[in-house]
Design a protein around this nucleic acid. Structure first.
Lengths: 351, 351
DNA sequence: TTTCAAAATGTTACCGATAACATTATTCGT
DNA sequence: ACGAATAATGTTATCGGTAACATTTTGAAA
């Protein structure tokens, strides 16, 4: 098993009776090689299955043909989507991806930055609610990293963050959701999941509250339960929300931080005997693959992560050459209406 | 943005007034360096944020500290789970992971193998129903790859595949599922999703049929609809299955190739007016994160992918040194009972 | 103080490919 | 058939570390 001495360009050159330079010419497809010579070399290459060392190449030209991606957890399908699209886009340009999972609440330590520099990555792509100026070590890490490679992040533009920012206007996204529910007749609307410390959530919460105010809807503090990003958070939030309130002032609709939270919330709501969407309308966020398959199918906001991912890779590759200035790119989010918001039941006078 | 010339060991050595060898000694933590010298060097390293080039190191010792992982699509949460666990385990040993998504039905072409060899990966981890001897190019690809690095695959052991195989006995897994449904009173049991060409599915289908025979249950060819791995496949399969049969001989229970197929099947079943699990019991496979959140919660088989992934990385790292012989490792699968199989309703006399 | 082993540090060839430059071979016009 | 222009091929320094070996420094014993 895997014993064979790796064959190098020298082996090929020797066997083919040419110099290493000629082998390089054949391998890299340069034109100035006689057809006969090319064929002779190619035969030896095929015979031994020679594959030039990407490491040696990398040493020569100081890069690795690899994009680094940092995200909290690949098992979250939202991140998986982003990662997948990034991998495909990178591959289309002959690049590979390098992944590191770093939980949202963990610091970006020097070791990670060291490794990314060490590996001579061609770019770094940060994903997830991890790019908070408040995050320990972040500013320094990005500053140092930025000296070595271009950086793209999925995050709202921030001062001090010297990188390309791709983002959605989450405040207006949430306002859109509130408007939609308001239009359907809802007056008492809650927000579940997320975290007040977290910026993305902050923007969501901000947009949520702002729209409540604009529409003159009640802003009961008990209606915000921002305590996490996963299914369990959704269950917890609903349990706490409903059990802390008199049934008469229960919200008639809720907006979840993301679809995972919505999933948990729906379970808990049903468990407490509510019928969805009649007793409680719900809107998620991320438009995950499972949204059409929940019961009722989950209305959700599509943030177009695939487009973000593709842009990220493209911009990173471009930035290598052009040495572009950092910029920001905002994408609109789209409300995907299914059954859970009750829109298909039509307008109703509620609460 | 990312302009600064990369600083090398020579820069550090010069600034610290020592030789590059001494810098190497400090960086790699060797003991034979005077404390004063070490400190002096370390200061320069910190001052410039020097990170030694992994590429140059790799050239020297012919390896990349990277494990390659090949899987069909990371957005499938089953693969995401495996990948995540692999990444974490690799990281614990100071290794990184390199990912390539190759659809199950695409050939393993030379280009991929070339790149893996080229990148001097320390091992290859193949995941997904892609390791079929019938797959174009596979045998040759693995043979060539195996000369350069150890290989671990999630697949049943096969002749000609000179690699470490980690797998579940999917036939007995399916038999278990059939037994469970039989025990609950079901007599007409169907199988949906997967593909007859595919080996994993083959084993599943085989175990499924075998148990039907053993229990003397009807083996109606219309009860197998193996036509895919995703949610849409589940919807299609159910639609075709039920619309092709008289209501009197509809199955009362079904086993899905995986949880995604089950998800689609459940949607279609409900859409056709059936109540779950009363009208139709269903068992999925993979015990995905969303199983507790379907309606009804989905009974599923846990194949312990995380354990597989950890073993894979451990064995790959071990195989580098020991040059071990290929072997196979089987894990039992576990039935996780929730509501969708109807077990919580108790035994019933059925159809 | 001298001597010598041990510790510290330096020198250099090498890993495998590439690119700039040098050399040799070929082609073509006259 | 000859020389010039051009195409084909070879030579070699280089990328940034590491490890083997060489050399210098240090410290303890004599």
């Amino acid at each position: 098993m895997h014993l064979e001495k790796k064959i190098t360009i020298y082996d090929v050159a020797k066997e083919a009776g040419v110099s290493t330079a000629t082998v390089t010419r054949v391998v890299t497809g340069q034109s100035n090689v006689r057809a006969l010579t090319r064929e002779k070399v190619q035969q030896v290459i095929d015979k031994y299955g020679y594959a030039p060392s990407a490491i040696a190449r990398g040493l020569e030209n100081g890069q690795n043909k690899t994009i680094g991606i940092i995200l909290p957890e690949i098992v979250n399908p939202y991140f998986a989507q982003l990662f997948s699209a990034a991998e495909e886009e990178a591959q289309r340009s002959g690049y590979s991806v390098w992944l590191r999972q770093i939980p949202s609440d963990a610091p970006i330590d020097d070791a990670v930055v060291d490794e990314m520099i060490s590996r001579r990555l061609n770019g770094a792509f940060f994903v997830g609610g991890i790019l908070e100026a408040s995050r320990p070590g972040l500013i320094n890490a990005l500053k140092r990293l930025g000296q070595y490679m271009p950086i793209v992040a999925i995050c709202p533009p921030q001062a001090n963050l010297n990188c390309i920012c791709l983002y959605n206007d989450l405040a207006s996204c949430m306002r859109h959701a509130v408007q939609h529910l308001h239009m359907l007749g809802h007056r008492r609307i809650a927000f579940v999941g997320g975290s007040l410390q977290e910026g993305g959530s902050g923007a969501r919460g901000q947009g949520f509250l702002e729209e409540l105010r604009i529409l003159g809807l009640p802003d009961n503090p008990a209606y915000h339960h921002e305590n996490g990003f996963d299914t369990e958070s959704g269950e917890r939030a609903v349990l706490r929300l409903l059990s802390s309130l008199d049934k008469k002032v229960w919200p008639t609709a809720m907006i979840a931080f993301n679809d995972l939270v919505a999933l948990g919330a729906m379970k808990q709501l049903k468990q407490m005997g509510l019928t969805l969407p009649q007793d409680m309308a719900i809107i998620g966020c991320d438009n995950q693959f499972f949204c059409p398959y929940t019961d009722p199918p989950l209305t959700s906001m599509d943030l177009h992560p695939l487009e973000h991912a593709k842009s990220a890779i493209r911009e990173l590759l471009a930035a290598q050459e052009n040495n572009t200035q950092p910029f920001s790119l905002m994408r609109d989010s789209t409300l995907v209406v299914r059954e859970s918001c009750g829109a298909k039941l039509g307008y109703r006078e509620l609460g």
